[in-house]
Design a binder for these strands. Sequence first.
DNA 1: CTGAAAGCGCTAACAT
DNA 2: ATGTTAGCGCTTTCAG
Lengths: 344, 344
Amino acid sequence: MPSRRPRDPLSAGAVTMAEVAREAGVSRATVSRVLSGSAEVAPERRDRILAAIDALGYIPSAGAQQLAGGRSRSIGLLIRDSRNPTYGLLHSEVQRRADEAGLEVITAMPTSYRGAPHEMDALRRLLALRVGGLLVATGVVRTADLTQFAPVLPVVSVGRPEDDPAVYGVSYDETGNGHAIARALHDHGHRRVAVVCPPTEHSLAESLRGRTVTAVLRELGCEVVEVPTTQFGTAADGTDRVIDLARDGVVTAAMFSSDLRMLDFVSRARGVGVEVPRDLAVIGCDGVMHGLEYMGLASLRVPVEEVARRSVEVIAQMMADRESVGIRHETYTGQLLPGASLGP
Amino acid sequence: MPSRRPRDPLSAGAVTMAEVAREAGVSRATVSRVLSGSAEVAPERRDRILAAIDALGYIPSAGAQQLAGGRSRSIGLLIRDSRNPTYGLLHSEVQRRADEAGLEVITAMPTSYRGAPHEMDALRRLLALRVGGLLVATGVVRTADLTQFAPVLPVVSVGRPEDDPAVYGVSYDETGNGHAIARALHDHGHRRVAVVCPPTEHSLAESLRGRTVTAVLRELGCEVVEVPTTQFGTAADGTDRVIDLARDGVVTAAMFSSDLRMLDFVSRARGVGVEVPRDLAVIGCDGVMHGLEYMGLASLRVPVEEVARRSVEVIAQMMADRESVGIRHETYTGQLLPGASLGP
DNA sequence: CTGAAAGCGCTAACAT
DNA sequence: ATGTTAGCGCTTTCAG
């Protein structure tokens, strides 16, 4: 017979239900009942138990609860790096809505851009915690990698283009948004435009935006120069290219697939004497960053709050009754934020 | 004898180690050994087990592991609402450093400002998960409420003023930062300054910053008008007050305890014809928000990256060997970001 | 209304 | 090197 394993030094001090039960002079089952409210307990014992819990500072082990009980009230949120204010806001809003719905959120955040495998690791951690639902709000991991989990637990793709019939999607209307941006450029008289956006692998959403704007502008009879971009601050980010295009008069405006890119551009352009909108008109996308209006930078505000609200609503309903929810792909349209940067 | 409880519908489909063992034709212990690498396993069986894991899509239950094994490789991060870019960056940096150190991060985020009790709830969730260490990066929960956990697990107070002898602190040098801000104002010739900051209950750090700046300015012989602030966008946020002070020529400059407040002010001031720095010089604090330089707004960049790096380093060391780390309160000084908003 | 006891999925001795 | 087994802390029947 194995000897009693000594308490692990790290988890030592964690009060158990048994200790609470002893302190209150009842059985563990009764303590459990009080905590879960799953059955009536004599008021007098109830109070004694509650007092013991308080005195001992007892906090039930989520692991043991999950193991014994099964179902989980928590949703896993896989979200990108909150260095980007749009993700910061989304995170915050999801959290708020989940709180309101009485759901716990467990967040996993893959670091910056380290690729899809890294995101899958983060996802696995969430699944290891046996969350009851999954909100995926990163731009990189492919939906194909998610479908395998869809039969096991509710999955909602948040704020990213989604078309897989097995995964519910709540996202931005990139098409509508692209139209709005293209029209704004056209309305301001621009006929030759640079469109700066990253490749698909880097960000599904941004890439789709860029392609939509390009397509619509061309439909409207504009010339479009597509400028691929990768990392910020490197020679490959397209900034120099756009500056050249502006100087040479090849384009009169540039569209950036995110406000961060736009801001990065205007700062560096100013550094070399290229002023917005004097030498080049610009418009970005996201509309979340603070100070856009103050800077006079035009953008398109994506409906983060609405997407967050609806995502939590959907996952909550799925968790309550899986069958009651048919898979859909909802999109929400943003609103143009005009600005002096579009030109006269 | 209780009947076998049917599999819970929600956790159904979660493959167990027993199934993997059966599939591979070995015992559960062997599977466990392969996963943890705690002992040598014959290569041939190893491969069979790995194949089974892959085929079945097995993901170990973190709850069961924690329950059986005891110690945890995960740290709990209690962090404020990432709507504020400074917290967003901090979150992101902590995550990155933890990744590097091979630690998992479990994040709990109390919604916006809902007070200390709400933060304690979030904290309790982290403790329920039996995290091996705690990083507290919120501005509201009092340290007194943390000390009770300090004996049980390593706790580090991050980016918030700390003076409790039982809790390790890694934070910003609010005193040094306050001095730098005050000197910058003084150097630019300002002798009458408004200092806008919230009360202690709202944010320990901001309030301390404001008080330091006030004190130093007075030492330097300046007149200071303290303007208390509460929520953004309400009449009580101090904006109107500062506008009046500027119009009446009572002050020539204003210091804001955070860049968000500063930006909010300059936007609204411009709306009523008060321009920065023409009518009033301003300086903020945090220096993280994008576009500050472009807007010409002066600030003080707090060393978020350094604080994040060091916090993770400390908690990692504490988790490895509790005794090896003596409680200290470290502070890191920021760097002044000059800007046209300080005036000529 | 309450207690006893059987597991949940896993790890870590212990015995081969 | 591998199997056997005793719990980890909790929930949930099943009997009182």
